[in-house]
Amino acid sequence: MSAKTAERKAVARKDLTYGQWIRKEMKRNWVAYLLILPYVLVFTLFTVVPVILSVVISFTNFNMLQMPDIVWIENYINLFFADDVFLTACTNTFIFAAIVGPASYLMSFLVAWFINELSPRIRSIVTLIFYSPSIAGQVYLIWGTLFAADSKGWANAALMEIGVLTEPHKWFQDANTVMPLCIVVALWTSLGTSFLSFIAGLQGVDRSLYEAGAVDGVKNRWQELWYITLPSMKPQLMFGAIMAITGSFGFGAVVTALAGFPSVDYAAHTIMHHLEDYGGQRYEIGYSSAIATVLFLIMVGANAVVKKAISKVGS
């Protein structure tokens, strides 16, 4: 028996109260606190405190210049009842996230599953092809050239050639086409971390389960997927979902780069843009903190719902 388990036996005795036991454990493991301290300090300062601070500031009219007054929920009332642009931004964000999130998740999983049985060499090449757009910096700007507004744009030229269009279409300046195009571009850059996680998860599924499944009457690859593969990679599915959801709310920069800011008729205006507008340009920090808080709640809420749904897979 190791020293550590012996000690744990000792603290299970009834002669210590819970408080005493905690204090004893904390003292015994002081090195652990030392090890996490630097990271936790930075994490607290740049992640935890900003979230709390933004909730606090959202109840004030802080503008970086004057002493802030507490205005309670006035910012939120204005946001939901007086700010039409915010409601447009909400709708756009939901449409965007509801399409990009699930579609990128599904695409990541399907591609990972399709290539799972290929030879390792071919698999790594295909992985590279699908993964590259997500790490290649600002390469998505090429979509701006492909769908340029004049007849030199490749899409316009091709469509005019076959007679679908008679004159060049302004893809990113037309309220009807800007949003769908941005969604396509976002999808193009979305096979990132969750994709890699799925590839690894599929590789890690215990081969003997498939053999056992075959003996037990699993007939085709779809049954195999549903009864064996998906349940055995539930942790990856969970992690991938979180990456996909968080990512689907984070495409503001792609939209700004392609559609400009503000986009035509606010057709591609998302909550992120609204936040940037009030916080980064108008310095209405109180109001923008309310926007940030709403966005935070939406993201964490969406994640919580999806996590619950995935925990039911295969059960």
């Binding site: 905690i22 454990e25 904390m26 493991n29 652990a32 606190y33 996490i36 936790v40 994490f43 740049f46 992640t47 935890v48 405190v49 900003p50 979230v51 601070l53 933004s54 500031i57 979180i242 990456m243 959801i245 968080t246 990512g247 709310f249 984070g250 503001g252 992120m272 936040l275 940037e276 916080g279 980064g280 920090i285 923008s288 903190s289 940030a292 966005l295 935070f296 993201m299 964490v300 994640n303």
Partner: peptide, 26 residues
């Protein structure tokens, strides 16, 4: 160690939101 699980849960939660949320207060 006491608090370890809580700290990891908190860090894990922060995977669930995009950093734009904290840009202004940062």
């Amino acid at each position: 160690f006491p608090g370890g699980k809580f700290i990891f849960k908190t860090i894990q939660t922060s995977l669930m939101f995009h950093s734009t949320v904290t840009a202004i207060t940062s």
